[in-house]
């Protein structure tokens, strides 16, 4: 048994909003040499593109855990809030 986050939508349910609930200031992320968000996010929503020096955040599979909010040392968020009512992760059991 293995947790493969490429298959997260097979076991955890989401009602994905069009409008992301977290937005980043790309310029701040570009100047960051920590990038703890990339390894600490338990849903692997953040990835670093070495070629274009760019952090990409994909909100679709966000578990709304709050890790990035605490771990970011640069305050790179132009928006960090929970999704609008009714959107986002939807746990069935857990």
């Amino acid at each position: 048994m293995k947790i493969n986050l490429d298959e997260i939508f097979d076991y955890t349910s989401f009602n994905v909003d069009r409008d992301p609930h977290i937005k980043l200031d790309e310029q701040i992320c570009k100047s960051c040499d920590q990038r703890s968000c990339v390894n600490c996010c338990p849903a692997a929503c953040y990835s670093w593109d070495e070629e274009n020096l760019k952090i990409t955040f994909v909100h679709d599979g966000c578990l709304e855990c709050g890790t990035c909010y605490v771990i970011c040392g640069k305050d790179a968020f132009t928006r960090w809030r929970y999704p609008r009512g009714g959107f986002g992760v939807s746990y069935r059991m857990t």
Partner: peptide, 9 residues
């Protein structure tokens, strides 16, 4: 078998 994966602070 994995049923659900979750996370929280």
């Amino acid at each position: 078998k994995l049923l659900e994966y979750s996370a929280h602070l």
